[in-house]
């Protein structure tokens, strides 16, 4: 039986910014919290960190003359076509599990940081102390043991749901319809079709403007990375082999250059 693709649904309309998921993530993954700077927001840290894989972004908005937050949980999106994996040179450092989870295996990581450049969502973080890269594993250890990821297990509002991707796509569509019925005409699903679909799905009230939530508008593997790992590789490999074989054939056909009359003068 083929493994079911698992997914996480984030219904941003239900997030109350309690940050319980952040704490659960830190606890389960045994991360030590490093204090950041206070920059006049309720957000825990300005950005993800090597030891902080799950951040609720408190995106401040002015809507209808009133201040509001567009909360958005921010973590690895577990792409079907992961840019990190495409860019990674070390076999086994980034693995895509049969259930769709994209996992970093630090014991194979060499700390080059190519995955950071390959990621369309700018998620992996390089630790200056261990020289390894870290990110959300969708609690692959818990999921492998039949449990729910820590963030989802702890969410008090049902903003987060875990399950098979097929089921969650349906649930996301249903939630979108409910939001539309509530008057949010712009509601929709954010699932990164440009990267083959993500296994983290969002329901957004303002689906036409995901950048309001701190999400990229049309996430794709950067074209320079695709070119580097695609056509450039084959052109260059052909050039290396062609030159070496050409040199060999040249020698066989023409031989070495001759030095004349060394003995005469």
């Amino acid at each position: 039986m083929p493994a079911t693709t698992v997914a996480k649904l984030i219904d941003t309309s239900l997030c109350i910014g309690c940050k319980a998921c952040e704490v659960a993530c830190q606890e389960w993954n045994e991360q030590e919290f490093t204090l950041g700077v206070f920059n006049n927001t309720y957000q825990t840290l300005p950005d993800l960190a090597p030891n902080f894989w799950n951040l609720i972004k408190f995106n401040e908005q002015v809507e209808d003359g009133a201040n509001s937050w567009l909360m958005a949980k921010y973590q690895c999106m577990h792409c079907a076509d992961p840019g990190c994996l495409k860019a990674c040179p070390a076999p086994g450092a980034i693995v895509q599990l049969p259930n769709g989870i994209v996992d970093f295996r630090q014991e194979n990581c060499i700390g080059c940081g190519y995955c950071i450049t390959g990621c369309p969502f700018d998620v992996p973080r390089l630790s200056p102390t261990t020289k390894k890269v870290y990110k959300c594993s969708l609690c692959s250890d818990r999921v492998g043991a039949g449990m729910t990821p820590a963030c989802i297990r702890t969410c008090p509002t049902n903003c987060l749901t875990f399950g098979s991707r097929t089921d969650l796509v349906e649930l996301a569509a249903q939630r979108t319809e409910e939001l539309k019925a509530d008057g949010f005409q712009d509601a929709g699903v954010y699932d990164g079709p440009g990267v083959g679909g993500t296994n983290v799905l969002y329901v957004l009230k303002h689906a036409s403007a995901p950048e309001k939530y701190g999400l990229p508008k049309d996430p794709r593997i950067p074209w320079t990375v695709s070119l580097w790992k695609g056509p450039l590789k084959w052109v260059a490999n052909a050039a290396f082999l062609g030159t070496a074989v050409g040199a060999l054939l040249h020698y066989l056909k023409f031989g070495p250059k001759e030095t004349h009359d060394d003995e005469v003068h």
Partner: peptide, 24 residues
Amino acid sequence: IWFPEVAPRSLRLIAVLVHPASAA
């Protein structure tokens, strides 16, 4: 490419193409 955590993303995106191309 040496310092991915310091270099801006826009530069890194160019560098990962320029470096292997010039190396080739």
